[in-house]
Design a protein around this nucleic acid. Structure first.
Lengths: 345, 345
DNA sequence: TTGTATGCGTTATCAG
DNA sequence: CTGATAACGCATACAA
């Protein structure tokens, strides 16, 4: 593989000049430039961005850490950062944590050793050691799908509390009074925890009792939703509506409910969270709280690049969620309400 | 940021020794090692993998190129390569092409400049210039979701022809005689093309006429499937079953068919391709041809690392597809068959 | 087991 | 507008 030195020799110029035609072509006389360009062709020169990174201490690479690329909402946000980065000629290294803190930690370590210029992290624990040490050491990073609304870290997210509140309110407005929730484990994601808070406060504000048996925490998976709904339906006085922490869980819950012999939305209303691309294609089409995942990814990337330029002034971008009403929620059916007390299984 | 030189000075050893405790700790006396380790702590030394990459000409990074991370099947394969790479301490840079050749080209160029040690490419055109030049220049790479079964390039894929054949055969065995296909544009993906070949040959082998109006090419998207099925249903003699190039399209087709007033699977059978994670959660649960996407990703990564060690002997791994029969296909209903000639819309 | 010296490909500083 | 040359942080041959 030839280097700028080879090119320089061939073109009878210095390496500095070769470097110039690469980085600021205008600063070199046209004739010289062409001579250099010809020499490059001749020896099939290939630019080495790694060497450049070494010399400039900028790798033009950022790290993106997400819990699970299989979750459509993270795939979308990934596409968002990806595309924005692409536009700015930045490469992105992807890391999956599988919701494991230890994994998150080792990933960040490896990424830092690789001299990434910054990090976008969809973390599981924004108050953890990891984030703190990143802050202390002045590494540019931004939190994505973040729950933090202020303080010293940059972040983009939505108001999960509000999302949970709105979802629950929708159900209440439909006449539901026994409303359950299937949540991602609070130990694993505080987003879910905040949504639950919104759910709970909404219940309270509407004078509905909070029944802790109507909350089940599970993993963020299809089967998690499916198993959880069955558990909920076994309750002596089962819910007529359930708010699910995300669409993936909701999809599982719908399946589980149907397996338990219910028909939706007549017997049970379900609302999800995310509005993943397939949400409107499901049967019944899913009522959900939309997060603009793609835009969030883009914005996070934008914020990061900004922060890399100017490390001061942390910023939080809170994006809007929106209730999307589709077919998975319906007015409560009084004849199938809690009073019948039947175990539908 | 401190370097091994700082550490060396602090520990009163040479930089070579510091380098040794990092890379081959056993080759240095325990006492010295501890001294060095202490010095590292003291000056808060952080290893610089980029510098190492520069010195060794190995970045320990590979590039992964996929058409669209939003397609669940690519998300899964990505997870596969990701996890295998992780195990081997390799970082992966992700690139989306959006099925655009030009994008694929510029991505590969950028990745090569970044000195990735190898490339995993889910390409759109295995016979194109890009692949050829990669081969010529001896860059280690492997094709993922590949259609090539032999020749000089390493690849992992499935037999798309056979998948298409089996899908069609299943439909025929259910009594269907008017079988349509919604395919991803042949110009954009040859996988789809091969599946169509299987479909077509199967028709022929069973003495069924091939009607070109029963094929519609579209983009690999939900709306693509939805629009295409409507087009198909407008046919004077519409199909009673449709084979879709992938599950995403199938999901769209199901939606579209339902909007057109059909009930599934009674009025129309649908079979997809991929078996994405949500396939069994759909309504009706999707009959499909399963590809082991996660495994394919892992295998591709394995093959690549192997190839990086030993650039000789290209290998193709063809993995098994499997027909998964669920609820979206059913025996043909004779009273709604082609003869009635009705336009169901 | 440890040290010395050199090189990796580029940028950047300083002269000219 | 161009050239000479010193970094950048680490690995590695070779020597001791």
């Amino acid at each position: 593989m030839s280097t700028i030195r080879d090119v320089a020799r061939l073109a009878q110029v210095s390496t500095a000049t070769v470097s110039r035609v690469i980085n600021s072509p205008d600063s070199v006389r046209e004739k010289t430039r062409e001579k250099v360009l010809r020499a490059m062709k001749m020896c099939n020169y290939k630019y080495n961005a790694l060497a450049r990174g070494f010399a400039t201490k900028k790798s033009n690479t950022i790290g993106l850490i997400i819990p699970n690329i299989n979750n459509p909402v993270f795939a979308e946000s990934t596409l968002g950062v990806q595309e924005y980065a692409e536009e700015k000629q930045i490469k992105v290294i992807l890391g999956n944590t599988s919701y494991k803190i230890s994994q998150e930690e080792s990933l960040i370590k490896a990424l830092r050793e690789s001299q990434v210029d910054g990090l976008i992290i969809t973390t599981t624990n924004p108050k953890g050691e990891i984030i703190k040490s990143l802050t202390d050491e002045g590494i540019p990073f931004v939190l994505l799908f973040s729950t933090v609304k202020n303080g010293p870290v940059s972040a983009v997210g939505v108001d999960n509390y509000r999302g949970g509140y709105v979802a629950t309110e929708h159900l209440i407005s439909l006449g539901h009074r026994r409303i359950g929730m299937i949540a991602g484990s609070f130990t694993v994601t505080d987003r879910s925890y905040h949504r639950w808070h919104g759910y709970r406060q909404c219940l309270k504000d509407h004078g509905l009792p909070y029944d802790k048996d109507l909350l089940v925490q599970t993993e963020y998976s299809l089967s998690g939703g499916r198993d959880s709904i069955k558990q909920l339906l076994k309750h002596g006085s089962p819910p007529s509506a359930v708010f699910c922490s995300n669409d993936y869980i909701a999809l599982g819950a719908i399946k589980g409910a149907r397996e338990a012999g219910l028909s939706l939305p007549e017997d049970l209303s379900i609302v999800g969270f995310d509005d993943m691309p397939t949400a409107s294609y499901m049967v019944p089409a899913l009522t959900t709280i939309r997060q603009p995942a793609y835009e969030m990814g883009r914005r996070a990337c934008e914020l990061l690049l900004q922060k890399m330029e100017n490390p001061e002034k942390p910023e939080q971008h809170m994006m809007e969620t929106k209730l999307i009403v589709r077919e998975s929620t319906a007015a409560v059916q009084y004849d199938t309400e809690a009073e019948d007390g039947g175990d539908r299984q």
